[in-house]
Structure formats: C-alpha cells, structure tokens
Write a protein that binds this DNA or RNA. Structure first.
Lengths: 354, 354
DNA sequence: TGTTGGCACTCCGGACCGGCGAGTGCCAGC
DNA sequence: GCTGGCACTCGCCGGTCCGGAGTGCCAACA
C-alpha cells in the first residue's frame, strides 16, 4: 500500500482528534453531507464547543485526513482519513447469527445447478445485503485439479468433451474431428487422460503429457492433443479473466456518483473488466481481506469508490476473490463482516461436496 | 398494433405533408433537437418559405404526428409520427456486401464454444454495429428436439447428466442420488432415455414417458424420473425466461435518456427482464420483424425507447427473437436491415451443423 | 386560393444580482 | 486551553432581465 499523502510522518493523533475524526467519518458515511464543527460538537460526545472542535478540525486537515470541498462547507474525509478510520478507529461488530444463517441458506448447493450458479448467487447476496455492487471472480483454475474427463460421441466427427474440475465446476465443448472414433476408442482415450491427470492440475502435467503422447501409437492423438490443449486454455482463463457482478445499478443511488459521465466511466470499466481484475488480483495474492479506498486503487476511474474484498478457497487453496464495490462512504462496519463471512461460506459450499 | 391516438381517421396526408414529415423525422433522428419551419424550408427540397411550412406543420400537429415540446420550440415526431415514417416514408437500403460479410464472419461457429456463446456474440454484434443495445433471447426449447442424453458417474451418488439439444445447445447438471449406480446401469438408462426421446421435444413425450416408467422395474426409476423432470424444466425455461443483452451503456450517450432516474428505470427493467420478454414474445408469435415505438409497447418504462426485433429460427422453426433497443430517434433505415440480416445469419449458424 | 413577408408574442436558457444560511478562521477574554 | 464573538467566504436559491428561436396570425400579393 503506497504512502499516499505527502504529509507529516504520522503526527500521532491525540485521543480527542481520533474521536472527532471517527464521528466525522461515521456521520459523513451516514448522510453524505460535509459535516461542520457545530454538528460534531453536538454528536461527538466530547464536551466541547464548536470553536474548539474547529481547532481539532484544522489539525486533521493539516494532517491530510479531512478536507473542505470549499471554504464554508463542512469537512469530508479524504482517502487517508478513511484509511485511518478503517484501520484503527472502526469497531466491526460480527454478524448476527441470523444473518449468517441467511447467507449460508442461499449458498447451499441444494438447488444450484452448478458452481457458476453458486458464484452468481454469492454475488447477488453481497449486493443484496449491502445495497452495493457485488463481485465474485470465477475460481482460478491453474491449480485446480482435474477430476475427470469424458467423451460423448454426438455424431460422426463431433465429440462432446467434458471436463470435471474440483469444486463443482464443469466445462464442456464440442470438438470437430477429421475422422470417426468408435465408442471404444473414446472410452480408451477418456480413461487414459483421466488417469493421467488423476486429480492434478493441468499446469503440472501438461508438458509431460504432451511429450508422452507424441511418442504414442498415433491414431488417438488428434483427439487427445486437442483435448489437452483445450483443458489448458480453460485453466488459463478464469480468475484472471472473469467475474460475476451483481447490483451495479445500486451505484446510481449515491449522489456523489450520480453524474452520468462518472457512472458511464465506472460501468465501462466494469465491462472492460481489466482494471477491476487487476485490483482483485492483489487481493488474491495477499490471501487476506483487502480494502482499497478511493485513489489507493491506483486506477483513476476508481477514485470515487472503495472496494472491500476477501479471497475464497476451495479445499484450502485460494482460488478467487469476492467483494463489494461502492462509494467511498460505505458502511465499512457492516460491509466488512459480510464480505468476510460470505467468502468463508462460499468456500465451504464449494468444497463441501465430494 | 393499437390505433394509438384519438384523432382524425387518417386524413390522407398530402404529398407535401409527407415530405415535410419525412425530412423532419430524418433531421430529428440526426441531431435530436426540435426542428423548426426555418430549417425545414431549407432542407426539405420543397421550394417553400418558412411561413408555408408552418401551415403544413400545423396540419401535422393536428393529425397527432408531431408535437411541440413548448410554444416556441420546433417540432418533434410523436410515436405515431415515427410509426407513419417507418411504415411508409422510410426507404430502407439493404446492407452492403461488406457488412453482411462482417456479420456472418463473427457468427461462424468456428471458435464459438457453444450455442450460448454464439448468441452472446450476436448480441454484441447488434450493439456494436448500431451503437444501441443488442438483445437476443435464448432459444425457446419447448419444441427443440432432444438429441441425446448421457450420464457420467462422478463419485458415489453423484452423477452428471448431459442433455444435448438441437442447435448446439448443451445442458448439464449434477444429480445427487440416494444410492449407487453402476456404469452399466447408467449406460442402460441413457440408452433407454435417448431412444425414448429420439429426436423429439420433451413436451411431446414427457407425459407418456413418465407413465411408462411408472410401470417399470423400479430401480432405475429415481434416476430417470429426475432426469426427465429436469429436462422438462430446462425446456420450459429460456425464451420465456432469459436473454443476452449487450451494450446497455450505449443508452447513456443519448441526451433524451441521460437523466439518471430514467436510466435507472430502464436498466432496472432490463435486469428484471419480465417486461422486455413480454414484448419480445409478441415478436416471436408474429414470426416476423416487429417494431415497437415508444408508447406502443404498452410498458410505460419503455415510453422513450423503440425496439426493433426479428425472430430467428433453428431448422425452420422460430425459436427466439433478437433485436435492438434504443431511443425512439434511432436510425431505423440502418437498424432494420441489420437486425433482419443478423436474425437470418444467426439462424443459419445455429442449424448449419449436424 | 395558395404563398409570402411582417409582426407581435411566447418561451427557454443563460447571465447577473442579492440575500440567506452554514461554516470557517482568528482573536481576545476568561 | 477553552470559549464566545465577529468578520468573512461560499454555495444556493429565487428573482429579473435579455437574446434567440420559433410560433400563429394577418394582410398583401400572384
């Protein structure tokens, strides 16, 4: 995380200043309007007059934690203000029993037809509970094990290839071939490949497998090579490539984003995906919850939003991230535990079956 | 199509009035601003003074074909104005060779992994070429033939069911069972079902099949019944249920829609899907190109947009619709042929394989 | 009779203005 | 070190004014 603002080397805020900052941020998060000394004097709990509060505010402003949109408006937290807030002022209360139950309810594999449907509903959950944008990356497949490979003959020269991956993920694709294969041959090829992969990731075996096949009796080769290549493609794709969004429209409800061009820019980057994925990647690598506030993300389009994200795992291996995107003034105290819990539960739902 | 406006019984417009209306609509489509007598006098080709044009405009207004946003603005076409325009004033020029080629290029099944990917790329095409919103419904499956059914054992009590439908569509789902099945049993069940369906639609055979199975030797029943039920669900779903959108964001570029709340309402109905599907259904039933202009759609959220849609077929049976959604002032002369051609080519791409 | 120029009128949008309210910074006094 | 007081700065709101665009109507003309 870059040290974003060119300011004093942590002037060690006084307890008072911390209280003021905290109530200011809380207040601003609540109703999105710059807050002034007057309101703070009343609501901070400190027994101080507005005038004294103003002194504190001046200090905070100098420290780069808050800013005034214009001379006679109240103050607004800056990115570093929020940062300090979430890092050391925020008291996150864990989710209630009831809410956890509600989440895990919706994340049962019960009616979900596939892993992908599960991801979608996780995303919808996130967005539904927080009234922000939910995002869940498709599980990274480089390290995901291949459990099984099957061939289903469709018609002459058309074969359906089925790839069963760990974590309920199924991929299929139709291959067009230049000669017929008998059911027995297909079976043979499937057996061979399935045992060759034997619960390993494509990455691990690919090279060796292709090597091996090159020296083989030839006539199943076309089919098998094509299959391995495709399996490889499949595992390259994903996490780096795609995610499921939900509730994008919620962003339209926040006045700080309601300018059409800002929205347009945001939605554009949502569909372009690259920037968002780049951001989420960091969270995958970190293997723990990450929060990006405004400019911290390093992508100027995202200057006005925050992203709260947590990685999720299948069988104890981190394979993806999920999270929430919303305006900087989001209710971090609620969002953080929701994201956290959802990540855990999604992981559980995905590896619980076997 | 309802006779929308409570006005004169078609006062048989003069040739002059028609010309004025045509250039007015064309102009308004071009730059979205109310057009006045002055501009019309210059650009209509008629050798008339603004004053005379005004008389004509008064007639057109009385006939409900145009309207003035306020006293001293130019005129704007009403829904019925557009209607008359597209029905009898519009000269649609067919697409150039080059563009047709470009479309069919992108609609090759070549790299498309599945039918669904094809639909998505059709949608993207539509949106890309017209700079509007592209929409393609998933093919209706009630009448689509089931070509094949396969079972792939995953692990004890988990079986992957694969449904191969006509038109490159593949569905799969994991079934959880309450006892083990041997590969031989699965094979047997697959054979039985595949031949029972034998290229027919689920709808046709469902009842009879369930009946038959009820009297059977029992122990494969759980599996097979579940499969038939699911196949039935699959074929109920779709067309009535889902579509692929592309380029929603394009709507933000039109000033007449750029109010955040309007956009919000529109995007909401896009994700709610119901209204849009209801509209598109009519196009499916009509089995020919349909154009809904503004209020004509009957859904007040869609008052400010037009929908140009055409059904597409697989193997000569209409199974879905595709089209374009945009502001009323869209370039109908370009959009219409694009939609038309894309529908044909998509159909072709979908049934060309076998 | 249809076409035209002229004219008064309407309306929108932008610019300008002044007052109000909210909030600030600073200072002097406690 | 806290506080009240005070002058000051803005943004916002409503009002007014003006120019431009376009209209409807009328009287004159071919």
């Amino acid at each position: 995380m870059p040290d974003n603002l060119p300011h004093k080397p942590d002037p060690e805020l006084s307890e008072r200043a911390r209280t003021v900052l905290r109530t200011l941020v809380e207040r601003y998060i609540r109703d999105g309007e710059p807050v002034g000394s007057r309101t703070l004097a009343r609501t901070s709990g400190l027994e101080l007059s507005p005038a004294s509060i103003r002194n504190v505010l001046a200090d905070l402003e100098e420290a780069g934690l808050i800013a005034a949109p214009h001379t006679s408006a109240g103050r607004v937290p800056t990115a570093s203000g929020y940062r300090l807030f979430v890092d050391s002022l925020l008291k996150v209360e864990p989710l209630g029993q009831q809410e956890v139950a509600r989440i895990s309810e919706h994340l049962r594999l019960g009616e979900a037809e596939s892993g992908e449907a599960l991801l979608a509903s996780a995303s919808a959950m996130l967005s539904g509970i927080t009234r922000l944008v939910g995002v869940v990356t498709l599980p990274r497949r480089e390290h995901v094990e291949i459990e099984q490979i099957e061939f289903v003959p469709l018609s002459a020269r058309r074969v359906l290839v089925i790839l069963v991956l760990a974590g309920q993920q199924i991929q299929n694709r139709i291959l067009r071939l230049d000669r017929d294969f008998s059911p027995a041959e297909l079976q043979q090829a499937a057996n061979y490949l399935s045992s060759a992969f034997a619960g390993q990731s494509v990455m691990k075996v690919r090279a060796q497998l292709l090597q091996e096949m090159r020296q083989m009796h030839g006539h199943l080769n076309a089919l098998m090579t094509a299959t391995v290549e495709w399996a490889d493609q499949v595992s390259q794709r994903s996490a780096q490539e795609d995610y499921v969004l939900a509730g994008e429209l919620n962003l339209m409800d926040f006045k700080e984003l309601s300018a059409v061009d800002k929205l347009r820019a945001l939605f554009d980057t949502f569909t372009r995906k690259r920037d968002i994925l780049h951001l989420l990647d960091q969270a995958i690598d970190a293997e723990e919850m990450q929060i990006f506030i405004g400019e911290e993300s390093g992508h100027s389009v995202l200057d006005e939003v925050s992203v709260v994200s947590a990685p999720y795992s299948i069988d104890d291996r981190v394979v993806g991230v999920l999270g929430v995107i919303g305006p900087r003034r989001m209710a971090y105290d609620r969002v953080i535990p929701v994201v956290d819990v959802t990540a855990r539960l999604l992981g559980a739902a995905l590896d619980h079956q076997r």
